[in-house]
Amino acid sequence: MYPSDRKYTNDHEWVRFEGETGVVGITDYAQQQLGDVVYVELPDVGKTVTKGEVFGTIESVKAVSELFAPVGGEVVEVNTALTQSPEQVNGDPHGAWMIKLRPSSAADAEGLLSAEQYSDLVK
C-alpha cells in the first residue's frame, strides 16, 4: 500500500529522495481524510523551508489543511499542474508530488518513518 521507495512523516507527508532532491507529497491516508481536494497552494521556486515548516495549503470541500516540509531545503521545482487539477491528489496521492526540495541537511532525514512504520501509524 505505502511504497517503500520513500519516507513518511507523522503529519502524513511523504518524501522520496532522487539523487540531490527530495520529492514531496501527501499520503493516501491524508487524501482519504481530507476528501475531495479542490485547492492546492504551493510555494514559489527558490523559497527555503525548514523541516516541519508549513510550505503550502491544501483544501478539500470541507476543510483546510497545512502542508509541512518533511525535510528542510530550497524549493527547486513546484508541480503547478496540481493548482489546475487538484483532484489528482485524490486519484494518485503517491504519484501527485507537490514540490521538489534540495535538502539542506542530511540530518533532517533522521526520524522519518519507513513505509512499514507509517502503515502501523495509520492502521
Binding site: 476528501g35 475531495d36 478539500s60 470541500v61 470541507k62 485524490n90
Partner: peptide
C-alpha cells in the same frame, strides 16, 4: 460512510465523496 458528530448525533458526512 464516514461518520461525524453533528448536533449531538453520529451522522454520515460522506459515502462516495462530497463531489460525487
Amino acid at each position: 460512510a464516514r461518520m461525524v458528530p453533528f448536533g449531538g448525533w453520529d451522522m454520515p458526512v460522506e459515502y462516495s465523496g462530497i463531489t460525487d
